[in-house]
Computed example of a mutant assay.
Amino acid sequence: MDNLFQQHGAFSWGELMTTDPTAAKEFYQKVFGWTMEDMPMEGMTYTVVKAGERSVGGIMPIPPQAKGESPAWGNYVTVEDVDASVKLVKELGGKILVPPTDIPDTGRFCLIQDPQGATISMITYTPM
């Protein structure tokens, strides 16, 4: 894992939640020349997006808990400690939309909303 994933405050991952992952993969492969690596997960397939040899994001079906949401790209920003950052978000008037959650073999993330309504995910990666 390169230093970008470990740098507090750096954008480190982009993720598309979509109604048609197959069509999205075909589109982005052609537009950006990305390669794709499917990873079966419980109840779905998660596709890791690669620019050259570097993993830069993912594509996944919209999960049941987000049913009815429009397809959208989301960004992850690395933080040193998701749980500590959640406390700061709350103190500053933000909301926690998805509480800190472990992603096996990856790290711990959450989805926050700033006081103006914009959303972004925070993640602390598991040391490799």
Rank of each mutant, 00 (worst) to 15 (best):
residue 104 P to K: 08
residue 88 L to T: 14
residue 73 W to F: 02
residue 92 L to A: 13
residue 86 V to D: 03
residue 103 I to G: 07
residue 77 V to S: 00
residue 115 P to S: 14
residue 2 D to V: 13
residue 33 G to H: 09
residue 4 L to D: 14
residue 18 T to P: 04
residue 119 T to C: 07
residue 39 M to Y: 00
residue 43 G to A: 08
residue 69 E to C: 07
residue 114 D to C: 15
residue 80 E to Q: 14
residue 35 T to S: 13
residue 45 T to S: 00
residue 117 G to L: 11
residue 10 A to H: 03
residue 84 A to R: 13
residue 73 W to Y: 10
residue 10 A to R: 04
residue 113 Q to K: 09
residue 15 E to V: 11
residue 29 Q to K: 12
residue 13 W to L: 00
residue 35 T to A: 07
residue 29 Q to V: 01
residue 17 M to Y: 05
residue 119 T to M: 14
residue 11 F to V: 13
residue 73 W to S: 10
residue 89 V to H: 03
residue 103 I to D: 07
residue 71 P to R: 00
residue 103 I to R: 09
residue 23 A to D: 11
residue 62 I to H: 05
residue 41 M to L: 10
residue 39 M to W: 05
residue 107 G to T: 15
residue 71 P to E: 12
residue 76 Y to L: 12
residue 15 E to K: 09
residue 123 I to F: 00
residue 112 I to D: 02
residue 30 K to H: 03
residue 86 V to C: 11
residue 115 P to Q: 06
residue 86 V to S: 01
residue 80 E to Y: 00
residue 95 K to P: 05
residue 117 G to E: 05
residue 118 A to S: 13
residue 19 T to Q: 13
residue 37 E to N: 12
residue 8 H to D: 15
residue 54 R to A: 11
residue 55 S to Y: 01
residue 63 P to W: 05
residue 32 F to A: 15
residue 34 W to S: 03
residue 74 G to H: 09
residue 66 A to Y: 10
residue 43 G to I: 08
residue 25 K to N: 06
residue 128 M to A: 13
residue 1 M to S: 12
residue 74 G to C: 10
